[in-house]
């Protein structure tokens, strides 16, 4: 992300987008600014690059369609994360339905895809952490993802997920303990 992109204010992007003559330019700036963050948010949930790319494209198509009606009651960043999270959840639900075997809430349809990833090494701590994360229930996984990796403040997370700050703190606490236990139990 270059300095110029970082400098561009969200409000200015939204304002420019609502001007028909500058719409495309504003949208390009918005994609440049948020693509990487949203990509990783999605990728950690769906694991496979091609799937993450598909979901990311769907997210930006929605953004293009609805940014005109964006009320600016919440920040653009929060709004984008909300769309990305919903799209990811919808995608995961679809995957579960497509799979012939029934999965419990604690089983993610992407656990198997994780071990098939290029350079996967079950002994490496970063892969172990991903394995532990994929075994969390979906909502807890999103909370862990947003807090641990995106370092999102709880108040903002509350806006993204529509859950109280207290519930999110508790959820993160449980998620951390579960991840930790998995890593300790699968130590070399």
């Amino acid at each position: 992300m270059d300095i110029q992109t970082k400098m561009i204010d969200d409000a200015a992007i939204v304002f420019a987008f609502k001007n028909e003559g500058r719409k495309e330019e504003a949208f390009t700036q918005l994609v440049k600014k948020y693509q990487e963050r949203l990509y990783w948010h999605i990728r950690r949930m769906v694991v496979v690059h091609e799937d993450a790319d598909d979901v990311l494209q769907n997210v930006f198509i929605k953004v293009w369609r609805h940014l005109d009606n964006f009320k600016e009651e919440s920040g653009l960043y929060t709004w984008l994360y909300r769309i990305a999270t919903n799209e990811t959840m919808t995608w995961l639900e679809l995957q579960k339905k497509r799979m012939s075997i029934s999965l419990s809430d604690e089983e993610s349809p992407v656990v198997e895809k994780l071990v098939a990833q290029k350079d996967f090494d079950a002994h490496k701590i970063e892969w172990k952490l991903q394995q532990a994360m994929q075994r969390l229930p979906e909502k807890q996984r999103i909370v862990f993802n947003l807090r641990y990796y995106d370092e999102m403040p709880y108040e903002q997370m509350s806006e993204v997920l529509g859950t109280s700050v207290g519930a999110l703190k508790a959820s993160y606490h449980f998620a951390v303990k579960k991840v930790e236990n998995f890593i300790l139990n699968h130590a070399l």
């Binding site: 990509y39 990833q117 951390v176």
Partner: peptide, 28 residues
């Protein structure tokens, strides 16, 4: 009191070369 505090936050996933440079144009 979590051990995760000591862990690195590196992402082990592979991303195709030049993906983030091309993705903006592709999406637009």
């Amino acid at each position: 009191n979590s051990k995760l505090a000591q862990l690195p936050k590196e992402m082990p996933f592979d991303v195709p070369d030049n993906y983030f440079n091309a993705v903006t144009d592709n999406i637009v």
